[in-house]
Design a binder for these strands. Sequence first.
DNA 1: CTCCGCCAAGCTGTATACATACTATTCCAA
DNA 2: TTGGAATAGTATGTATACAGCTTGGCGGAG
Lengths: 241, 241
Amino acid sequence: MSSASDRAYAAIRAMILSGELASGSQLREEHLADRCGVSRTPVREALHRLEADLLVRRNQTQRSFVAEWSPDDIEQAFELRGMLESHAAKRAAERMTPHLLDRLRGYNAALRAAITGPYPDVPAFLTQNARFHRGIIEAAESARLTTILARIVEQPIVWRTAQNFDHDDLARSYREHEDLLAACASHDGVWAASVMATHIRRAFHTYSGADRAAGSVDPATADAIQRLNLYPNMANFDDVS
Amino acid sequence: MSSASDRAYAAIRAMILSGELASGSQLREEHLADRCGVSRTPVREALHRLEADLLVRRNQTQRSFVAEWSPDDIEQAFELRGMLESHAAKRAAERMTPHLLDRLRGYNAALRAAITGPYPDVPAFLTQNARFHRGIIEAAESARLTTILARIVEQPIVWRTAQNFDHDDLARSYREHEDLLAACASHDGVWAASVMATHIRRAFHTYSGADRAAGSVDPATADAIQRLNLYPNMANFDDVS
DNA sequence: CTCCGCCAAGCTGTATACATACTATTCCAA
DNA sequence: TTGGAATAGTATGTATACAGCTTGGCGGAG
């Protein structure tokens, strides 16, 4: 399942994420091909996917550059994510099954374990958080919604948010997930949508309020992010492991 | 600007739209390459774009098929379009400039002309309708929103809707656009969002209520649709002509 | 000194050949 | 007759060569 094209996609994405490829810098197909150990063909495919993700931009003459993110872009990403994931939460609550509810509770229990104690395990938090949110999106049973959220809204900028979370923020995320589970258990779509909107909006303000270093990402976190983004469209995330 | 890859995209898209390629049928790269008069490379790129548009699906073994649309898929498409275009309308109203307002009024005047008289000119209606909606989306000034709406929500199923419109439906569309212009002129985002939500929801019910022939599309309409979809991400639609 | 145009180097677009993986059919054996 | 395995045919994945266009620098003319 790990074709050259997938590897190129993951590698280039990781290079952008980690700051190895600076924002705004040009991406040359042949150069990337050498670095990824594949030919230009899979690199071209990867660049097109990354362009659809809005991680890469092309100028008039088809040359590729690492996309630059303005504060306004970031706010828009959070706004759309809030809108779409609220909708997903509503649908998920209305369709929730006992089996899926158990799975989601498991993820959130693991998330709690990751942040319990003096030193929170941020990569583990990210992993469980991603599983939880993807579980909700899956439960919404809408292919379009899944595609949009996976490809366009699940951005590095979103993943990086957790880097700026302190212990209280992490704990609050856990409690908001618990609220969401309660809403799902009672099949209350309006409640679920409302909790999700709050959850994501709070994350946005935590992100913008934080005094973040614009540079690179902690290696362990970068690694977790890369693993999480390898197969964003995978139907059942559990089967990968 | 018309590269082989663009031509392949437009041609395959048109073949799917017109029903020439039946829903669910397999798409072979080499076969399509012959029909489009290009090699496999641009066809591959086109198929990937169409896959991102959800017009093409791939099975486990990477073989491509024309996507099949269930009634539920269609409702979801309308639901998402309603949500996202309402949001766009809100932002557009808040940011509206006199110049753009004039342009939009021009489109809607042309739309009125197209439906005045005993025999409405459906292709002209579609063209002006598309310009109007794209103008709104442009005015929202959100790259993410534009990308999502252009690539995922602007579906053939949406375009075909107008085929089921009778004269009253067409006239109602015109009047709803006028309401939207009034909302934009007064910079009332809430009003604009509300009008847009109504507009799209009504279109959905007209579509589902209609006793439509599942088959092919009137040639002139198919032609208009194809032209409209050639460069869905073009920044300024007017420059194309 | 500046500006325009030309030329060279480099990058992307396309075609094509080859490698790999799936499918379906056929044939043999139980 | 049915089930399974082998094989031929067909599809997609990747590498690579070449063509066309863009860019940037250099040189000559004003």
